[in-house]
Design a binder for these strands. Structure first.
Length: 350
DNA sequence: TTATATGATTGATG
DNA sequence: CATCAATCATATAA
């Protein structure tokens, strides 16, 4: 009795599954979802959540995860880049970049206040290129830091609330949330590090360019030269302008006080070194009046040598008395300590 | 190109 | 701290 196998098979009803590759049915199913079915699903979910066995059941995966999590957590040894970060911070701080800090009160004032001990102040008017970039960087840096920190905070908050939300339907322990946030901070920190590194590099470059200022020296304008020379030759017996006068000259010439000081410093030296050449100029500014009469160029050379040799001699009394070797006897230069009682050294009389 | 003029920097001084 | 003296590195004249 063998059963004929070739019987028309029909006892197994073929399941009504859609043949593989047919997305149409899926789409149709999705389209079939109605608000009602959604509500129904929500209701069942809620019912599940409120089920009396739920806490007990839920604790099981939680415990399992807790145990598994401990192993993972061991790897979480954070914080080797701390030292380097600190280093970068210090460098940036030294360059005049200040971080907003937690109480951001002076974030704005940071831009204008140069860090003492940093770069010189108003020595270079013509490196405005690099200087401008530098100050721009100084201005932008704190705000970028602030942005970064804010983004970090927001993102962490987001993730935390997301995980808290999810902790209702899947095992997420507070510790795990903490862990994730920690990882997040790590990632953000590396970004921060990059930010600081690139800032540091840029600042160093700019600063070195500013410090190399003298390479890009530029002569003063006609006006400045005019004003300075006029003062110098009309006060050639005592070419030491007071601070006030320096400011005045600086204003008139469109240069800085430091530049005025530099100019006078250079001028005195060079005038002393080679007075003959300056003689002509002197006449153009003062109308043929100098502290000592120079006759001819050949005389000048001799005189110069003579002067050089008797520079230390205190031979006061001759015509050369004014400027000979040292008119550096700096008398009280106007607004300086006059009535010094012996106490207040730093007299701020502006 | 070289030579001179010139603004800025550096170290020393009192 | 202001100044001097020497020096650097560029700008300008030759």
């Amino acid at each position: 009795m063998e059963t004929p196998c070739c019987r028309p098979a029909d006892p197994r009803r073929s399941p009504p599954r859609p043949p593989p590759g047919s997305d149409t049915d899926d789409v149709l199913q999705i389209m079939a979802i109605t608000d009602q079915s959604l509500d129904e699903a929500q209701a069942r979910k809620h019912a599940l959540n409120c089920h009396q066995m739920k806490p007990a059941l839920f604790s099981v995966p939680c415990e399992i995860k807790e145990k598994a999590g401990l192993n993972i957590r061991g790897i979480l040894a954070e914080g080797p880049p701390d030292a380097q970060l600190q280093k970068l911070d210090n460098m940036l701080l030294a360059e005049g970049m200040c971080r907003p800090e937690k109480h951001r009160r002076g974030a704005q004032a940071a831009a204008g206040t140069a860090t003492p001990g940093g770069c010189p102040n108003d020595s270079g008017p013509e490196h405005s290129d690099s200087r401008a970039k530098l100050s721009q960087t100084r201005q932008i840096y704190p705000s970028e830091l602030e942005k970064h920190e804010q983004a970090c905070r927001e993102f962490a908050t987001h993730v935390t609330s997301l995980l808290q939300e999810q902790s209702r339907i899947r095992p997420v322990s507070p510790k795990e949330i903490e862990h994730v946030v920690g990882i997040l901070h790590g990632k953000f920190n590396s970004v921060l590090m990059q930010l600081k590194e690139s800032t540091c590099e840029a600042v160093m470059t700019l600063r070195s360019r500013v410090l190399d200022a003298r390479r890009k020296r530029q002569n003063f304008g006609k006006q400045a030269t005019e004003v300075l020379n006029e003062y110098f030759y009309s006060h050639v017996s005592n070419p030491y302008p007071s601070e006030e006068t320096k400011e005045e000259l600086a204003r008139k010439g469109g240069i800085t006080v430091s530049q005025v000081s530099n100019w006078f410093s250079n001028k005195r030296i060079r005038y002393k070194k080679n007075m003959g050449k300056f003689q002509e100029k002197a006449t153009t500014y003062t109308g043929s009046f100098g502290p000592f009469p120079m006759t001819s160029t050949s005389d000048t050379l001799i005189t110069l040598q003579t002067l050089a040799s008797l520079r230390p001699a205190p031979g006061e009394g001759s015509l050369l008395g004014q400027a000979r070797g040292g008119w550096q006897v700096r008398r009280m230069s106007t607004a300086s300590p006059i009535g010094d009682p012996g106490r207040v050294t730093s007299n701020a009389s502006n």
